[in-house]
């Protein structure tokens, strides 16, 4: 399994992601977007950062770059694809996942640890967690507020495609525990092509190495071992 971590101009969590995956024993490599996806890519991560300076909207430019057509084709073939933070914004802009991540309710960039409740433990990304388990992940974004039409949100919930919701330390989903005003407190969701495609705003790769912080995110990235 080689995981391609796609670098755009302005990506800045690309190396962290490769290192975190490497620490888990998952082979991963940086792939410059202009070079295209390698043929042997068995997984794809669209990492965090500020691709193209967040021009127009966060993720808008990268989503329309040629490599994303390759990522969509790979997703169509069943290749696992994970978008983290800016990668989540790109994933939504590229129609890998429904909805959009837009300006935080606070209108500020927020860099803090948050709690996430595992909503569905029956996906490749969450199967190592328990439903209802509370994780601590960091967020670092200015445009992380999840927006989606009410009927699409209802369908997402109905189809069990919400991975994580922001919650308090006890797992209660409350307005106070919602850091950015995300609709329904959604922090991550799976794609229209199936649960092998997912996006989330919090950073699992920043809570994977034991010498950095907690390791709550490691079990999510271990999906690439499967």
């Amino acid at each position: 399994m080689t995981v391609a971590v796609v670098q755009f101009g302005g990506s800045n969590c690309d190396r962290d992601t490769v290192r975190a995956l490497g620490a888990l024993g998952v082979e991963a490599e940086l792939v410059w977007h202009e070079d295209g996806l390698p043929d042997d890519a068995d997984g794809v991560v669209i990492p965090g950062g500020f691709s193209y300076g967040d021009y127009l909207r966060a993720g808008a430019m990268a989503a329309r770059s040629p490599v994303m057509a390759e990522v969509r084709a790979a997703a169509d073939r069943g290749t696992p694809v994970l978008g983290i933070c800016n990668g989540a914004q790109i994933g939504c802009e590229a129609s890998l996942t429904p909805g959009a991540f837009t300006t935080n309710e606070s209108a500020r960039f927020q860099c803090e640890h948050v709690h996430l409740r595992v909503e569905n433990a029956d996906t490749p990304w969450t199967r190592r967690y328990k439903e209802g388990e509370v994780l601590e992940f960091p967020i670092a974004h200015g445009e992380g507020r999840y927006e989606v039409a009410d009927d699409r949100l209802a369908a997402l919930a109905e189809d069990d495609r919400i991975l994580f919701r922001y919650c308090d330390a006890d797992g209660a989903v409350t307005p106070e525990a919602n850091p950015n005003g995300s609709k329904h407190s959604v922090a991550g969701a799976t794609g229209d092509r199936g649960n092998h495609v997912a996006v989330l705003m919090p950073h699992p790769e920043r809570v994977t190495l034991a010498d950095v912080a907690s390791t709550d995110g490691a079990d999510l990235l271990r999906a690439f071992e499967d």
Binding site: L56, A60, R64, E93, P98, G99, A100, E147, V148, A149
Partner: peptide, 8 residues
């Protein structure tokens, strides 16, 4: 295709 995001 680019300037607007139909979701929002």
């Amino acid at each position: 295709r680019l300037l607007a995001n139909p979701t929002i």
